[in-house]
Design a binder for these strands. Sequence first.
DNA 1: AAGTGCTGTGTGACTTAGTCACATACATTT
DNA 2: AAATGTATGTGACTAAGTCACACAGCACTT
Lengths: 228, 228
Amino acid sequence: MITDANTISRIIEQFHFLQSADSDFVQRFFDRVNKIELPPSQPICHQGTQCSHLALVISGVARVYKISDSGREITLYRIGPGESCILTASCIINDEPFPAYAITEEPIEAVLISTADVIRWTDDTPALRNYLFNLISSRLSEVIGVVEEIAFRRVDRRLASYLIQRADTIDGSIETTHQVIASDLGTSREVVSRILKDLEQQQMISTARGVIKICNRDSLYEKSSETQ
Amino acid sequence: MITDANTISRIIEQFHFLQSADSDFVQRFFDRVNKIELPPSQPICHQGTQCSHLALVISGVARVYKISDSGREITLYRIGPGESCILTASCIINDEPFPAYAITEEPIEAVLISTADVIRWTDDTPALRNYLFNLISSRLSEVIGVVEEIAFRRVDRRLASYLIQRADTIDGSIETTHQVIASDLGTSREVVSRILKDLEQQQMISTARGVIKICNRDSLYEKSSETQ
DNA sequence: AAGTGCTGTGTGACTTAGTCACATACATTT
DNA sequence: AAATGTATGTGACTAAGTCACACAGCACTT
């Protein structure tokens, strides 16, 4: 149960479906759900487990990913404010085990809905249902995008795109490690290190321990969009 | 509109949601939908186009896949009897363009539902809504499985699995070409040819133009489940 | 039977990517 | 300054993808 008016208005602001739902539902909603806070690097869902709650993220970011036997990782997508761990919803509704891992990256505030409420509400509340349907559809599109990336695009091009995307808007710097990048892209740390070295020699970026800085965004962009 | 009693009962048999829906809806359903037949190798959805109908497959198989600039393909999943081109549904509901290609493999009979009816019925008919939700969730799981395969598993292991899966149950033979296999697995024809040659030298299979026959299923299975 | 053409398969040489085993560099603590 | 832990660099090797081209099997013509 959530009672704090301030928290409630933050949640309503973040989740559009609460605005289009009738006030009766909104009241029941805040009666039945709970708010939790999670620290960074907190595992949320384990592959193969059943999910007991659906989490709607108010603030923070979580990462959903796969791990291979050899320990390599690949990020499927991230969950941000206003979104939800939709795989959970899909597991709840289909009664299947969770097919991946999820972990918090930035500290998360989330609303927890119990399995029973998810099932009841998706049945009788069009607003929530549409919200979930839209979210799961866009996840499907995103994951199809991941398939396309890893099946067809060269790692150096993908890395160039990744750097542009992640670069700080002000000074073009990124604080991260090669291992983290490798885990996002689904490749190995050595491969990332070598490509970064190449990019540095071509003056597109400069690197230091834990930091990458974009020096020539244009030529990096050009590299990212080379075909084949 | 579908009136033929025989056709109607075949459709109801295939689509469970029509059994759990109330009879009022079933009547409206058959009043409003149409049946189509498509020959093999007929393109259904083109990447980037809007979808005007949702197709429910009564018989036959379609393939949903991605193509790279260089012409390489990868299969995302197949649509069989009782299933539906759920990407279409997701595009209809989110009003997004279709993110892949779909083509019939075996001749297809399908029920076509117009965009407007899809939207109306997902809103007022729980049975149809749940059917679609389950389907899209399981597609998401499948596509996540594809990511895992191409990101982490070696091509020779994947090919071994593929052959076991596709082999005729009676004599263990498969009628296909190296190019078709490559397109399913998301690799190139040459790679498939080389690995098949290896498998043949290890007496696991024998090959001829357009045919592959499994000779030693056990050792092929062993190969498919080697780790790393 | 020989000719023609299409589709399917084989192969070498080369580039890109992933693995393994280390070496080295930098930052923080003691 | 030494010790520790994390981050990065590198060579050697295997796996996978690309390109160019050769050749084989089959259908169809004449």
